[in-house]
Amino acid sequence: MKLLEFLKRERKQSASVAKERLQIIVAHQRSQRGQPDYMPMLEKELLEVIRRYVNVDQEAINISLDREDDCSVLELNVTLPHSG
């Protein structure tokens, strides 16, 4: 019996892995909620333009749209590699 419990503990519980993965993906989905339908396309095209000049990858670019009282702010954050 003891041995059985020991063996069980060795394996990481799959449900907690599922929970962690879901928390991340759901947070990502929610950050995109309510944004205009053109955002994914805009994001893609901005990335293409930047890549024409600098070789950056997807993760180096962060685009967000924040709504304030009477206007929206499009924020574009690009981390450039050292050599430029």
Partner: peptide
């Protein structure tokens, strides 16, 4: 299955959503 950690429990699902 929830008890043995192989299924998301209801609290987790409620919390995520």
């Amino acid at each position: 299955r929830v008890t043995y950690g192989d299924m998301l429990n209801l609290e987790d699902i409620r919390e995520i959503l």
